[in-house]
Amino acid sequence: MSAIKFETSDGFTIQVERETAVVSKVVKNFLEYHPTDKCTFHLNCVDNATLRKVVEWMRHHKDDAYIETESDESDEERSQDVSIEMDPWDANFLNEDLFFLLDILNAANFMKIKVLFKNCCKKIYLMSKGKSSVEIKRLLKERCDFTDEDLQRIANKYEWMARVN
């Protein structure tokens, strides 16, 4: 059986069965143009822990027929209402801290795994929606570089900008 290898940014190598690896659009496209049994993909921006997590996801979803077609569920469906439809397995799988989720999101984007990418976005959306700016600041661990005066000024506008929306 053929196997595909991934080399992570921190120097680990993970071997993955072909049918799992092709869940990644990058791998799939590469193999279509360069048919081979053995090859190694260098993932410069994916570390070991993240890749293990991503591979676990790919393995679980490797047989899903809809993985390919999901992308035609156009954006228009999303804009109506961010429907938080998510496979319960995925929802549970993505119960991670935000920092790790961002790593997975980056990896899914890099490896072109659309469904995982979307589900990460949804998960992060769920973590941040309806939160106050203070809560978001805490969530993102963002340093606030506004002066109190700035904050007051921006906050004053908030109320009636929210009203026109």
């Binding site: 999303r78 929606k129 700016s133 340093r143 906050a155 929210a162």
Partner: peptide, 17 residues
């Protein structure tokens, strides 16, 4: 990521940094 947020959430983000 921001495209998932609605306008109210985006307004809150204005106060972050």
């Amino acid at each position: 990521l921001f495209s998932y947020l609605n306008a109210t959430d985006l307004l809150s983000l204005r106060l972050v940094s």
